[in-house]
Computed example of a mutant assay.
Amino acid sequence: MTLTAKANAFLAALALAFVAARRAPVDAFVAPSPSKAAIARRIIPPSTLRESPDDGPKEDGATTPTIQSYLQQNYPLFESLLLVKIPNIYDILRTSDSSDGYTIFCPSNSVMENIDPKRRVQIVDPRNDEVTEKLASYHVISNGKVTQERLKREDWTVPRSADGVAALSIGGVLTLGGELRVGRSKSGGFLGFGAREDGGVVIGNNEARVVKSTTVGNGVVHEVDGFVAPDLIWR
């Protein structure tokens, strides 16, 4: 099944869920303002994290996809259910493309397909558009291209920690929605104990892992294995 077919099937399922949910009253929801994340190292506004475009040479006759066409083709559920809820988002990204660049954290299609049913209803309910917009906004940096290399860069000007690990040069980034923590991913261990850093990067307090990164225009799209927004956004 193609991504487009999957997207259409998923949207149809959401519509049925929404119709069922309408049988009971749904209170308007305004998420509490998330508190500032306690980040050990400084949060650097993306405007100071400019990276040189790393687009490779294009084959003769090849065209560079726009960010809109790229997302619609590769992340149709995230694009249609979340990103488009941000007013004038593509105007914002086009402006960013010609200046500082942009960064987007895209939950994979499998993440979107496996959203909890109650959260699916929240996303599709037009009465929750303000909340959905806030959720989506945490996935976009509109004034800076922050590559995976930049996220993983270590700061050798400060002493290493007790376990010999160097600090990351940035502890977080500032998105349209607010601050997000940047940290190292871990693997192994048992019941949360003994896990070791494996060289990857996680974003947000829920530690959504960066799976892969793709340069699109003067921006970068990071595929992540979860939502990077705080859980406080959800009802």
Rank of each mutant, 00 (worst) to 15 (best):
residue 132 T to G: 07
residue 98 S to L: 13
residue 56 G to V: 05
residue 211 V to Y: 06
residue 29 F to I: 09
residue 180 L to K: 04
residue 231 D to L: 12
residue 187 S to N: 14
residue 156 W to M: 13
residue 87 P to K: 06
residue 230 P to K: 04
residue 131 V to H: 03
residue 50 R to K: 00
residue 190 F to K: 13
residue 22 R to H: 05
residue 175 T to M: 10
residue 227 F to D: 02
residue 200 G to L: 12
residue 164 G to V: 11
residue 51 E to I: 03
residue 135 L to C: 04
residue 172 G to T: 04
residue 24 A to H: 09
residue 193 F to E: 14
residue 222 H to A: 14
residue 43 I to P: 00
residue 76 P to H: 03
residue 177 G to M: 09
residue 102 Y to G: 08
residue 215 T to P: 01
residue 149 E to R: 05
residue 179 E to W: 07
residue 13 A to L: 03
residue 55 D to G: 02
residue 169 S to N: 10
residue 154 E to C: 09
residue 176 L to T: 11
residue 171 G to T: 13
residue 116 D to F: 10
residue 109 N to T: 14
residue 120 R to E: 01
residue 127 R to A: 09
residue 149 E to L: 07
residue 5 A to P: 01
residue 75 Y to N: 05
residue 49 L to E: 00
residue 142 S to V: 02
residue 10 F to M: 05
residue 192 G to Q: 09
residue 209 R to E: 15
residue 224 V to D: 11
residue 77 L to P: 03
residue 119 R to I: 00
residue 15 A to M: 05
residue 8 N to A: 15
residue 115 I to E: 06
residue 71 L to Q: 04
residue 153 R to Y: 04
residue 100 D to V: 08
residue 210 V to A: 03
residue 86 I to N: 03
residue 84 V to W: 00
residue 157 T to V: 10
residue 193 F to S: 15
residue 49 L to R: 00
residue 198 D to W: 06
residue 172 G to E: 06
residue 78 F to V: 07
residue 200 G to R: 03
residue 123 I to L: 09
residue 155 D to Y: 04
residue 88 N to T: 11
residue 115 I to L: 15
residue 124 V to I: 07
residue 156 W to L: 14
residue 110 S to E: 15
residue 165 V to L: 13
residue 16 L to C: 08
residue 41 R to W: 06
residue 148 Q to W: 06
residue 104 I to A: 14
residue 45 P to K: 02
residue 26 V to Q: 01
residue 49 L to I: 02
residue 59 E to N: 10
residue 211 V to R: 05
residue 28 A to T: 13
residue 118 K to W: 01
residue 36 K to I: 12
residue 214 T to G: 09
residue 116 D to S: 10
residue 36 K to G: 09
residue 77 L to S: 03
residue 217 G to Q: 10
residue 207 E to H: 11
residue 191 L to Q: 13
residue 182 V to R: 08
residue 98 S to D: 15
residue 138 Y to W: 09
residue 22 R to E: 06
residue 226 G to P: 08
residue 202 V to P: 02
residue 190 F to G: 13
residue 119 R to N: 10
residue 5 A to Q: 11
residue 150 R to N: 12
residue 45 P to V: 08
residue 66 T to S: 15
residue 191 L to V: 12
residue 216 V to K: 01
residue 185 S to E: 14
residue 17 A to K: 01
residue 137 S to A: 15
residue 138 Y to M: 04
residue 36 K to V: 13
residue 188 G to I: 13
residue 204 G to Q: 05
residue 16 L to M: 04
residue 211 V to P: 04
residue 56 G to Y: 01
residue 161 S to I: 07
